[in-house]
């Protein structure tokens, strides 16, 4: 259902265009070596040396805004969309039990959470292979690893991104049970993601930063060091799983006793 909708196919198309755009812009501007000390600069600077960094740079770019938006659209629409056109009442009278409905919807959202970063990664690798050298990969920590090892780290990064998005998906699913207006649920979910990012950017609120679900999104850069640094990633995984658990429970509690009058 998710992948047959033209709206979602369009989102995938735009996501696929981003690594291509990055690859072409780096190719036509200059072949300058790495500059800048931050992760973004390092990622973009490495592209000219090895094409696989097109995928990493693209993931870095989409992870903060574009991916959360793509997830918000699908997750926010999940229950409210069915309520909006009235198919929810027919699903429930089939009957589909309400917990099962939520489980099926969340499974769909999870597959979307995986396919979106996967699309960016795969297109990034292909674009990189087409325009840049492929040999061994120089990691952010300066060590060299074989190309295949680089691809393995890319896969880890994609899985990490998918898991980070699973929190957005759970929040979106809960919000979606609150309303019959899909666009409101989508906007609310995206707004919550942005709010989390904004709070994360205010240094005075450092105390709550470790508990924000967006705080660990870019920690995937740790997966590009040698040896692999897992502590930031691990915390991110735990906090994300906590969010997933809380919001799925809220969604279950909300939908379980709700009068469906749409």
């Amino acid at each position: 259902m998710i992948f047959r909708r033209r709206r979602n196919q369009a989102i995938l198309g735009v996501l696929a265009a981003i690594p291509i755009l990055i690859a072409i812009s780096v190719k036509v501007t200059d072949h300058g070596s790495r500059r800048g000390n931050d992760n973004a600069g390092a990622l973009f600077g490495s592209i000219a040396d090895n094409g696989v960094f097109v995928a990493f740079a693209a993931l870095f770019v989409v992870l903060t805004v574009f991916l959360p938006m793509a997830i918000s659209v699908v997750a926010g629409d999940s229950v409210s969309g069915e309520a909006n056109i009235g198919t929810l009442r027919y699903l429930l009278t089939v009957p589909v039990s309400r917990p099962r409905l939520l489980a099926v919807k969340y499974t769909g959202i999870l597959s979307w959470c995986l396919v979106t970063p996967l699309t960016v990664g795969v297109v990034g690798v292909l674009a990189g292979l087409a325009l840049f050298p492929s040999g061994s990969v120089v990691l952010l920590s300066g060590t060299q690893v074989p190309y295949v090892d680089g691809l393995g780290r890319l896969l880890l990064t994609i899985l990490y991104a998918a898991l980070m998005m699973a929190a957005v998906g759970a929040i979106g699913l809960f919000v979606s049970t609150l309303t019959e207006v899909p666009i409101a649920a989508m906007a609310t979910t995206l707004a919550l993601s942005i709010t989390s990012a904004v709070l994360d950017a205010i240094p005075q609120l450092g105390g709550i930063h470790p508990w924000l679900f967006s705080h660990y999104w870019l920690r995937f850069a740790d997966l590009l060091r040698d040896p692999l640094q897992f502590d930031g990633v691990e915390k991110g995984v735990l906090v994300t799983l906590g969010y997933v658990l809380v919001f799925l429970t809220l969604g279950w509690a909300r939908l379980g006793g709700k009068d469906i009058s749409s």
Binding site: I85, G86, V94, P95
Partner: peptide, 27 residues
């Protein structure tokens, strides 16, 4: 009980971009 009960509630509701047959298959 509900699998043995067929229902039409407050008008039909189906996914607009699926065919009639595909909608029935989904249900």
């Amino acid at each position: 009980v509900l699998p043995r009960v067929g229902a039409l509630v407050e008008g039909p509701a189906f996914h607009p971009y699926l065919s009639g047959r595909a909608n029935l298959a989904r249900l």
